[in-house]
Amino acid sequence: MNNKNAKTKDWSTRKNRLIYRLAYWSGAYVATMAVANFGPRLLWDYNQLLTIGAIILNLLAGIGMILVNIQHLNVLDELMKKIQLEVMGLSLGVAIVAGLSYSLLDTTNFIPFDAEIAHLVILVGLVYLTSIAVNLRRYR
């Protein structure tokens, strides 16, 4: 019985630890993205070596974030995995469909500005957050 309690606590602790690790890596990714984006202009006057270094650092933080996210998904229980699967399916679908349509609007000059990848990232983020909230409510 004690062994079972310890195992349960292990699962709960492991899950919480991975949530913190995911938050840490996401934060690192956002921070390195900000440095890589604003650094050349505000910090090191477009020094190419520092710029490529910042971009590589951002790439590495992104890879770390992806790997921790996979570990986080693996530790979730089955309902949470199902919710994440539906939400990620929707987010990926929106990213591809809306992204390509947005790109077509740009290449055919239907919009007076360039299609920015940042707009797509914001859209996917909003779709992800909204559908997570809806799905969590659905199974509440």
Binding site: K7, D77, E78, L79, M80, K82, Y139, R140
Partner: peptide
């Protein structure tokens, strides 16, 4: 939920019939 190593929400969803558990669960 703690004994089954799932979230409390999962237990609630099973109890209310909104979610059918897998065979292992």
């Amino acid at each position: 939920a703690e004994k089954l190593e799932v979230s409390r929400q999962t237990v609630n969803a099973i109890e209310t019939g909104k979610y059918d558990p897998s065979l292992p669960l």
